[in-house]
Design a protein around this nucleic acid. Structure first.
Lengths: 67, 67
DNA sequence: ACTTTACGTAAAGTGTACTTTACATTTACG
DNA sequence: CGTAAATGTAAAGTACACTTTACGTAAAGT
């Protein structure tokens, strides 16, 4: 699964720290998500989409629907 | 967080077992999701929305954005 | 050079999504 | 009734989302 977090964060001119604070998670969580270390919970995915004013499917790309 | 899984499952005329098989999860997982015991992972949420041919936000209702 | 800002990442711990096994309850049908 | 299909749920285990702490690196400012 891919995501556009880094791009969107740049567009919204936010640092990892600032985004983390808005989402009430740690900076490491943002870094890990951007690096694809793991997938967000559905609640976090929802909050992220909300910050970027779009839908979950606009932030996260399931395309190849890997495993 | 609420969800419309049970309703959608009824509309699509599927048993918990049949839906579980399509999603490649156990029947208990479906039961637990319907009963609100826990939230799905984002991958499972995506697969569920796909089966019901709609968006994640159409199946899962974050409204009160509890915790 | 020194410091600050932004980011990468590793280790150890906690909580929870999901599994398998198993048994109980409900519903409908012969 | 008896039985089968559909569902609820509990216990114990595994995997992973997320945390805190901590340290490293690279860029930019002063």
């Amino acid at each position: 699964m891919q995501n556009r977090i880094r791009d969107l964060r740049t567009i919204f001119d936010l640092t990892q720290d600032e985004l983390a604070e808005k989402l009430e998670v740690s900076r490491q969580t943002i870094s890990s998500l951007e690096k694809g270390r793991y997938n967000p919970s559905i609640m976090l995915a929802y909050k992220i989409a909300k910050v970027f004013q779009c839908r979950i499917e606009d932030v996260f790309i399931f395309e190849g629907e890997e495993k």
